[in-house]
Design a protein around this nucleic acid. Structure first.
Lengths: 335, 335
DNA sequence: CTGTTAGCGCCTTCAG
DNA sequence: CTGAAGGCGCTAACAG
C-alpha cells in the first residue's frame, strides 16, 4: 500500500538510501535503523512488479502441468521445489488442461514477465506449441519426449523400457495372457507406450491384447478395463495380467476386475506405471514401474537453473531410466 | 523479447498509436493493420510487469494450498478456476507447506504485485498469519475456520456436523465401538473435528476411542490407525468402526485393518471425510462425508471476484454444509 | 556513505 | 485519429 518514497520521507532520507538500506547495500547503521523502522511502521511491502521490471528478474519459476489431479505431477513438482530452494526461487504451479490451446495461453501469460523460467510437462506436443516455446522470453525446460529434442533443454522418461520391464516381470511370475490398457494414443506418452507394448509382444511372441482409454484418469481407465476384460473373456481365453499405462488406470482396472469377481493377484495380476503415491495406497498394493518422476523433476530444475545462470550454454537432453517396484498385485502365480 | 517501441518503429507509428492499436482503442484501420503485422513479425509479447505496474492489475489470482498431494485441494482449485474463468482471470497454485512461516512467505511474495487477489486454505492459523493477511495489498479470501471471521471474506465447512453425520450413520448400521483417527490437533480442522467427536460421543453415550495422526496424510494415518486398532484390541472389545479425519487417513486405516486380517466392512466399517476422488478409487469404495470442497472453492472465488469489483463491500462469511456419501465401506451389519 | 537522476516497458492524459 | 510526455515503483549508475 505504501511506496518506497513514503518510507524514505518518513525516515528523512532519500529514496535511494531507503532502497539500499532495505536491500542490505552499503548504508550507515543509523540509516538502516531509521528506514527499517519507517518501513515497519508503514507496513511497507515492495512492489514486485516494479522490482521485476527494473531488475529483469522475479525470483519465481513456474511448473506447468497437464493434470494436477495426477499424483505423479505432485512428485515432480516437489522435486522441482526442493531443487530450486537453495537458489531461492519460488515455484508456482499452473494447471494447463490437456489441450494445446490452454497450454499456449498459459505460456503466453506466465512467460510475459511473471516468472524467470518454466518447466512444462505437456501431454500433447505439436508444432504450434514448439513454436510458442521458441518465442518465449524466458527459458523453458520440457519434461517429456520431443520430436526434435535439440533446441530445448529436455528431460524424459524411458517409458518404452518401462513397458518392457512390466511385461517381463509378468512373464517371470508365470502370466501369459497379458493385456494393456493404454492412455490416449494422440498423446506423447500414450503413443510411446503403445508402440513399446506392440514391440515387446512381437519380440516375445505374445498375443497383443490392447485397449485405449480416453484419458489418463481413473474413470477412463475403468471404462477401458471393463471393455478389455469383457472382450478377452468372450474369446474363451481370459487375461491373467494387465499392464496399465499409469497408476490411475491401474486403479480403474482394480475396480473392473472386482466387478467381474476376479481376484488380484490370484486371477489377474496388475502392473501400473509411474509408481505414484496411489500405488502404495491401493489394496492390494500395486506393482508399478517407477518412471522417475522425482528424478525428472530434479533434473528439469537443474537444467533450468543452469540455463538461467548461462543463457548461452548448449541445450541438453536427459533420459531417466525406469525401475520396477514390485508389490502385492503381481504376487504368486496365476491360479 | 521485443518491446512496444520496436513494434511502433517498424510500423512507422508512435508508441502510443501502437499501444492503442493492440489494445483495441480508437485507431485507424490502416494503423491497426500495420501495427498488428509488425507485432506478429517481431513476435511481440507485451511485458506483463510493465502493464501491471501501469494498470495496477495483472489478471492473475493465486490459490495457496497446504498440501498439493491431497486431492481435496485439487477439487477446490478446479472449482476456483471454473468460477473465475468467465471473468478471465488465470489461477496460479502455490504449495505453501503446512507451517505459518512458509505461508507468510508465500503471501508476501505473491501479494506484492504478481496477483490481484488470492484464496488461501491454511491448515494452521495464528495471529501472525492474520496480521500478515491484513497487511496485504490485495484482497484475500480465507477458506477455513477463523478465530475472528469478521474482517475477512471467509468460507468454511461445517466439519463438526460432518463428524456427527459419520457417527450417526455408523450407529444406524449397527456399529457400537467407534474409533476416531484425527489429524493433528494443532491444526484448525483437527481441533474442530476432535472436539466434535468428543461431543457426539458424550451426547450419544459412546466410549470415546480416539487417536491423533501426526499429519493429514496416508502414512501418518496408517501409523495412527495401527496404534488405535492394537490399543483397542488389547482391551478385549475391539472396534467395529472407524471414522477418519480425511480420506487419506481412511486409506491408511484400510491398510492397518488388512494387516490385522480385518475385513472391511464386515469386521470394521470405515468412514472418511472430504469425499475426494480417492474415496471412489479405494476398494471397497469408501463412505465419506462430503465437506463441499468444490462448493467452498466456488464460493471463495465468487467472494474474491465480488471484492475485486467492490473493495468496500462488507466482508462476508459462508458456511457450506456437509453431506454423507454412502459407499461400500459401511455396508451391512457388523459380523 | 548519501542524494540526484535516468530509465525498466507500458498506458494514458493532453494537445495537435 | 495521432504524437509527445509524464509517471506507475523501483534500482543502479553517477556525482558529491
Amino acid at each position: 500500500m505504501s511506496t518506497l518514497l513514503e518510507v524514505a520521507r518518513r525516515a528523512g532520507v532519500s529514496i535511494a538510501s531507503a532502497s539500499r538500506a532495505l536491500n542490505g547495500e552499503s548504508a550507515s547503521p543509523r540509516t538502516v535503523e531509521l528506514v527499517t523502522a519507517a518501513a515497519l511502521e508503514l507496513e511497507y511491502v515492495p512492489d514486485a512488479r516494479a522490482r521485476g521490471l527494473k531488475r529483469g528478474a522475479t525470483g519465481q519459476l513456474a511448473f506447468g502441468v497437464a493434470d494436477v489431479g495426477n499424483h505423479v505431477y505432485v512428485e515432480m513438482m516437489r522435486a522441482v521445489e526442493d531443487a530450486v530452494r537453495d537458489a531461492s526461487y519460488r515455484v508456482l504451479i499452473s494447471s494447463v488442461g490437456s489441450t494445446v490451446e490452454t497450454e499456449v495461453a498459459l505460456l503466453r501469460s506466465l512467460a510475459s514477465g511473471y516468472v524467470d523460467g518454466l518447466v512444462i510437462s505437456p501431454l500433447r506436443v505439436d508444432a504450434e506449441l514448439l513454436a510458442e516455446l521458441g518465442r518465449l522470453r524466458v527459458p523453458v525446460v520440457v519434461v517429456g519426449l520431443l520430436p526434435h529434442p535439440e533446441g530445448f533443454d529436455n528431460v524424459r522418461a524411458n517409458s518404452a523400457a518401462g513397458v518392457e520391464l512390466a511385461v517381463e516381470h509378468l512373464l517371470d511370475t508365470g502370466r501369459r495372457r497379458i493385456g494393456f490398457v493404454n492412455g490416449p494414443e494422440d498423446t506423447t506418452p500414450g503413443r510411446v507406450r503403445g508402440r513399446a507394448f506392440t514391440a515387446v509382444c512381437e519380440r516375445l511372441g505374445l498375443a497383443e491384447l490392447g485397449v485405449v482409454a480416453s484419458d489418463f484418469t481413473f474413470a477412463a481407465g475403468l471404462d477401458a478395463a471393463r471393455d478389455l476384460l469383457d472382450r478377452t473373456t468372450r474369446t474363451g481365453t481370459p487375461l491373467d495380467a494387465v499392464v496399465a499405462a499409469n497408476d490411475l488406470i491401474a486403479a480403474g482396472t482394480y475396480h473392473a476386475a472386482a466387478e467381474r469377481g476376479l481376484q488380484i493377484p490370484g486371477d489377474l495380476a496388475v502392473v501400473g506405471m509411474d509408481d505414484s503415491a496411489l500405488a502404495a495406497q491401493l489394496l492390494p498394493t500395486l506393482t508399478s514401474v517407477d518412471l522417475g518422476a522425482a528424478a525428472r523433476g530434479r533434473h528439469a530444475a537443474e537444467l533450468l537453473l543452469a540455463r538461467l545462470r548461462d543463457p548461452d550454454r548448449p541445450t541438453q537432453s536427459v533420459v531417466v531410466e525406469p525401475a520396477l517396484v514390485v508389490r502385492s498385485s503381481t504376487a504368486g502365480s496365476p491360479s
